[in-house]
Design a binder for these strands. Structure first.
Length: 417
RNA sequence: CUGGUUGUAGCUCAGUCGGUUAGAGCGCCUGGUUGUGGCCCAGGAGGCCGCGGGUUCGAAUCCCGUCUUCCAGCCCA
């Protein structure tokens, strides 16, 4: 349905019956990440454009055609963050990281990318991400991956499949790019139009093309791993060895390149069904980022989980946290005097932590009982003139329909202890 | 951004070949003797038929445009 009150395209509201699921995912993240020493960080949704330009890469699709950028009244070029890592690194380095110091943070929030929406793909979407910043070691990468698997186990998706690969160091990439370029340019005529474009813009992404004829050419292409430096291959070998040691199942996917320029060495994705054509529920890797104003690149490793996709995957696995009914008591009033007393009583019970709903429109009893039923309240407390004079309320258990009188002063102790 | 697809009540959807006052189920509201929910019964409220233009005596229905939904590509989470 199309109405004026709809949000703009590709952006959706999250209603109360859904937020319980969202809270569960966020709370679980906090519990799991805490075990690995991670604390939450909250960085701005809006950043200067250059925070993303150089780190993500000027030639990437995200920067070229997917960023929500605009000029503010002060003439600054700003953009709605398309991912979380660049902003977190900006924040961390701005405050300063001591040499050899390690920062462990996680975040959860909205990201923006100007794409046409589909299943598991929105213009405003939400990522849950972590960053381990400051140090370089295969074991750190592995611990990061282990933590990701730990989280997926905690949200009931232990069957998600881990894909890993290496991109080597930036210096390796130049030599690999040359090898790939000289190979693929031979097949310029045969490849799809997207791949012909990629020849100039982003040659690594050809490896990820799904076009059948392109695939035949890709299969025979020189393996990336063979053209990396010995130290890069050694780094990757250590990552794989440690994962095996820790019994983490994974698959090396040489097609896995990912679309952001800042990645070096280890890259990985977690795939699971239920998200339609896009099955990457989480992705990440090691990176080197130099935020604007910095003189040195800062190393780190991290991942981001797509929350919308995570929810789709969980739904696919038959998992969803239902909204709990939070109401304990529905207060039913008969007559003006009792109504006033009930207003006072509601306040007193709420001070004791009881969740209460009551009729505020002077409706009849039947209507009030219907509301009591719909509210999901465990008890209906009924008070009219008769009860008022006796200092009692009628308490009706909405589950079994039993009802009994109860002294007003004893309500808390009798019902909630 | 490209291709396809969708739009009628709060929700799910009917609506014939163009023909009066646009329907159903669910939900909602009010009742079914004086103070008791669910089930049942009766009644009621609720529609810019996505929007704009066109054809026609007449359009929810046909044509064009546009917006939106959803799916896919691209890309990524």
């Amino acid at each position: 349905m199309s109405k004026r009150s709809e949000p703009i395209p590709g952006i959706t509201d999250i209603f109360p019956e859904e937020t319980t699921e969202w809270r569960f995912l966020e709370n679980t993240a906090r519990d799991v990440f805490r075990k690995y020493g991670y604390d939450e960080i909250r960085t701005p949704i809006l950043e200067r454009e250059d925070v993303f330009l150089h780190s993500i890469g000027e030639s990437t699709d995200i920067v070229q055609k997917e960023m929500y950028s605009f000029t503010d009244r002060g003439g600054r070029n700003l953009t709605l963050r398309p991912e979380g890592t660049a902003g977190v690194l900006r924040a961390l380095t701005n405050r300063g990281i001591l040499q050899g110091e390690e920062k462990r943070v996680y975040y959860s929030g909205a990201m923006f990318r100007g794409e046409r929406p589909a299943t598991g793909r929105k213009r405003q979407f939400h990522q849950l991400g972590v960053e381990n910043v400051g140090k370089i070691s295969p074991d750190i990468d592995v611990e990061c991956i282990v933590m990701l698997m730990d989280y997926f186990r905690a949200v009931g998706l232990s069957d998600a499949k881990l894909l890993i690969n290496t991109r080597g160091l930036p210096s390796d990439r130049d030599t690999v790019s040359k090898v790939l370029s000289s190979y693929f340019s031979k097949y310029d005529e045969e490849m799809c139009s997207d791949c012909r474009r990629r020849l100039d813009t982003n040659i690594w992404r050809i490896l990820d093309c799904k076009n059948p004829t392109c695939r035949e050419i890709i299969v025979k292409s020189p393996p990336v791993l063979d053209n990396l430096s010995e130290s890069s291959r050694d780094y990757f070998r250590k990552v794989c060895d440690r994962l095996r040691l820790l019994n983490v199942e994974f698959e090396v996917d040489t097609r896995l390149v990912r679309g952001l320029d800042y990645y070096v060495h280890t890259v990985f994705e977690l795939v699971h069904g239920g998200c339609g054509a896009q099955n990457a529920v989480a992705g990440g890797g090691r990176y080197e980022i130099m935020p604007p104003g910095n003189r040195r690149a800062t190393p780190g490793v991290g991942f981001a989980i797509g929350l919308e996709r995570l929810i789709l995957s969980r739904a696919d696995a038959g998992k969803y946290v239902e909204t709990e009914t939070p109401i304990d008591v529905y207060l039913v009033s008969l007559g003006d005097a009792a109504r006033l007393e009930n207003l006072v009583l509601a306040g007193r019970l709420r001070e004791n932590g009881v969740a209460i709903l009551m009729d505020l429109e002077e409706r009849g009893m039947k209507a009030q009982m219907r509301s009591a039923d719909k509210s999901g309240a465990r008890f209906a407390l009924i008070r009219g003139d008769e009860e008022l004079s006796k200092g009692v309320l009628v308490c009706k258990n909405m589950g079994d329909s039993n009802q009994f009188e109860i002294l007003e002063d004893n309500i808390i102790t009798e019902l909630f202890n």
